[in-house]
């Protein structure tokens, strides 16, 4: 058990160090997120009433797209320089390595989006409470995106046009997260209880933690053949 935990932390730490050495990649995802969100008012007009209503959906869809953007790198960089093969030979189950990479990916590409949300919420004139719920829902939901996305990233490893294909595979699977995530904010603004949405999101997160590392590990083994 200790060895499993230790390997998990080794992988997380390694990926975080690598991300820090390549800060530009992290920033690109964040800037993409901010830009997509800021484009919506330009597209649909500046009426504050409508923007307030659209804000949760816009932020969630943008977060979805931003995380798709960064998922392509999740395994491919390690695949290209051979370090992924070494991880396949780790003396602990591959799912531990995969979970470590998922967590690191979320900390680098999901967490910054959550932290950026309040600023963007202001752009859309969202009430304070709604911003809080939106952040909570993103906090619970973006890890699920990283995890489901990791399956897609593993399946499309090394394929031509893998990035677009990845989105094609993963986006439909992410729909429940999107629905519950935006639903929570909608329920909060209309004065209904939002806890049921968040607990459903939490349930999805638990399910994802339980199953996706194993599935993604299988996918990696298939793709590495």
């Amino acid at each position: 058990m200790n060895k499993i935990l230790w390997l998990f932390f080794v992988v997380v730490r390694r990926d975080l160090i690598l991300a820090m050495r390549r800060r530009a990649d992290v920033l690109t995802t964040l800037i993409f997120f901010v830009m997509v969100v800021s484009l919506f008012p330009l597209g649909v007009g500046p009426e504050p009433e409508m923007l307030r209503k659209m804000a949760p959906g816009v932020l969630w869809v943008s977060a979805l797209l931003a995380s798709m953007l960064s998922l392509g790198r999740l395994f491919s960089a390690d695949h290209l320089d051979g370090t992924l093969e070494q991880m396949l030979l780790a003396p602990q189950p591959l799912s531990v390595v995969v979970l470590g990479k998922m967590v690191a990916h979320w900390m680098v590409s999901g967490l910054p989006l959550v932290l950026m949300t309040p600023v963007l919420g202001l752009q859309f004139d969202m009430p304070l409470e709604a911003v809080g719920v939106l952040m909570l829902s993103l906090l619970l939901g973006t890890p699920v995106l990283s995890m489901i996305g990791a399956i897609g990233a593993a399946l499309t490893l090394g394929l031509r046009g893998g990035g677009v294909l990845l989105s094609l595979l993963v986006l439909p699977l992410c729909i429940p997260v999107l629905i519950f995530g935006t639903g929570a904010v909608g329920a909060a603004t209309s004065g209904m209880g939002f806890s049921s949405h968040l607990s459903l999101l939490g349930a999805l997160l638990v399910l994802a933690v339980a199953f996706t590392p194993w599935v993604a590990a299988q996918a990696l083994r298939i793709s590495m053949e």
């Binding site: 160090i17 690598l18 050495r21 390549r22 290209l80 320089d81 051979g82 370090t83 093969e85 070494q86």
Partner: peptide
């Protein structure tokens, strides 16, 4: 064939 080392490290 690949060295399995990271350029950044």
């Amino acid at each position: 064939h690949l060295n399995a080392i990271k350029d950044e490290l």
